[in-house]
């Protein structure tokens, strides 16, 4: 009687154990079970949507009904490359992304150098937190704050007034400035980490061999931190290239590629898709370029 009850009680548990044992003996099965869901997610939702984007760029729209006509044609891409305004906007967008990235590098280096090497060690984590804090604030709040700063008679004008200057107002410089502010932490963090881990004796070694600080920076620090800078630039570049809200708020009349996608999406989905593939292609090219620096392994 007791025996029967016991076996019954242990039934499910024994099965579970057998199952666990089976899984333990078959690592491939285990891996498959573990990865199926995330891989499906990646393939179907992520790559799938990219594929749909690309495919739909080859469709057209009925100009009367604005309904998508599923007939293959490269018209959209033809328009894209032959219409001067599109070319101009694409170049402007890439230019903004590059400018933001360059500014981020220039600003991030001294800041990261300070937080990683100069500041007292017990202050460093706090400084890193301080750098990250803006990331917790809402994107829109930050951009609107910059709108206030850059507006007529705003903080920027007020500070430049004694010098007989005025702020840049709304426009392309304001956009670059605001985007730089927005994405700066993404650049500082990897550079900070790289500098924090940078072996101090390499600086000594370089100086010892006769290199002045500038030379040491160029030949030793920069090449070793470069992968991290490249990693950070992947964020600053792609986030800038995809942005269309900041430019609406502080960009004055400037339009970037995101704005074109946005304004086409209701009326001409295929054209919007064609426009949308441009940043994707640019970013893929950028990633390929950055991969050579070893950036992808330091993200």
């Amino acid at each position: 009687m007791t025996v029967v009850a016991q076996t019954a009680g242990q039934g499910p548990r024994a099965t579970a154990r057998r199952l666990a044992g089976a899984l333990h003996r078959r690592p491939r099965l285990r891996l498959a079970l573990l990865l199926t869901a995330p891989l499906l997610w990646l393939a179907v939702l992520y790559l799938g949507s990219l594929a749909v984007l690309f495919v739909s760029a080859f469709w057209t729209t009925d100009s009367f009904t604005s309904e998508v006509v599923k007939v293959w044609s490269a018209d959209n891409f033809h328009t894209l490359f032959t219409t001067p305004v599109y070319r101009q906007v694409i170049l402007r967008s890439v230019g903004v992304a590059l400018a933001v990235t360059a500014l981020c590098v220039v600003i991030a280096f001294p800041v990261a150098f300070y937080t990683a090497r100069v500041a007292r060690p017990r202050w460093r984590p706090l400084l890193v937190v301080a750098i990250l804090t803006p990331l917790w604030a809402s994107y829109l709040v930050k951009v609107y704050a910059w709108r206030l700063i850059l507006s007529q008679g705003g903080l920027c004008d007020w500070m430049l007034e004694p010098l007989g200057l005025s702020g840049p107002g709304f426009g392309l410089p304001a956009t670059v400035l605001t985007l730089t502010y927005l994405w700066l932490p993404y650049m500082i963090l990897p550079v900070h980490t790289a500098l924090a881990q940078f072996p101090a004796n390499l600086l000594d070694a370089s100086a010892d061999l006769g290199a002045r600080p500038g030379r040491t920076f160029r030949s030793v620090v920069a090449p070793m931190v470069l992968p991290s800078v490249a990693a950070g630039s992947i964020f600053t570049f792609s986030l800038s290239l995809g942005d269309y809200i900041t430019v609406q708020i502080v960009g004055g009349k400037t339009q970037l590629i995101g704005n074109l996608v946005y304004s086409n999406i209701e009326l001409d989905l295929p054209m919007a898709a064609a426009l949308g593939t441009v940043p994707v292609v640019v970013i893929v090219l950028y990633l390929l370029a950055m991969r050579r620096t070893g950036a992808l392994s330091s993200i």
Binding site: R147, L148, S151, Q152, G153, Q248
Partner: peptide
């Protein structure tokens, strides 16, 4: 955006 632009004088 327009309200703020007129308020600031932009």
């Amino acid at each position: 955006k327009e309200v703020s632009a007129f308020k600031s004088g932009d």
